[in-house]
């Protein structure tokens, strides 16, 4: 069974749950996979630390929870500090490079990718699309869900009337990720040890 555990962390209001929704929907509606999304529900989803957990698999998912994230995507320092210790040492850490400073002494085997998603979102004049920029970046630097499926999922998941803006945000994140993989950006840190 090929299963990937994904955790997304940030602050309530940053669109953490929507990011999880887009990745899960992309995997099981627009790609040929199974996906289960669980989320922090309660006061923490409304302002303080907040997280979404997505399990993606080729087979029916039994246990719905993330136990050891293979991929951690964080939009806040608190989420990074809190969730990095849970990660698989060979996992992939995706983080907002302006908001998050990596803790020292991360396992060398951990792959890390940073994106100045807030700056990109501000360039689009809508800071609230920072989560969609991150999803685009996720599409580029991981191979869990097909980018075309994620693009369709963005379109199907965002509020009506905002599709165009969000798709631009997605493409900007995707392009940044592709450049990062090609080694063309200075801000992305890709561990190749």
């Amino acid at each position: 069974m090929n299963t990937t555990e994904i955790k997304i962390g940030g602050l309530g209001g940053q669109g953490v749950i929507l990011s999880g929704m887009i990745i899960g929907r992309g995997a099981c509606i627009f790609d040929d996979k199974y996906a289960t999304l669980t989320q922090a529900f309660g006061p923490e989803a409304r302002g303080s630390a907040c997280s979404a957990q997505v399990v993606i698999s080729d087979e029916l998912i039994e246990y719905p929870y993330v136990e050891q994230p293979d991929i951690l995507m964080v939009l806040s320092q608190e989420a990074c500090t809190r969730f990095v210790p849970e990660m698989s040492p060979t996992g992939t850490l995706i983080y907002e490079g302006q908001l998050v400073k990596l803790p020292p002494s991360l396992p060398e085997t951990l792959k890390r990718f940073a994106i100045p998603a807030t700056r990109i979102a501000e360039e689009l004049r809508r800071r609230m699309v920072v989560n969609i920029v991150m999803v685009g970046f996720f599409a580029a630097v991981t191979e869990v869900v097909d980018a075309a499926a994620l693009r369709k999922s963005v379109e199907a998941s965002v509020p009506p009337g905002t599709e165009e803006l969000n798709l631009i945000a997605f493409e900007r994140g995707l392009a940044y990720g592709q450049e990062a993989l090609a080694g063309k950006t200075s801000e992305s840190v890709v561990s190749r040890k």
Binding site: M21, G24, Y34, T36, T38, I61, P64
Partner: peptide, 10 residues
């Protein structure tokens, strides 16, 4: 139950 109610799947 709360988990089934708030869990999202296809």
């Amino acid at each position: 139950d709360e988990v089934i109610g708030h869990m999202t799947e296809k």
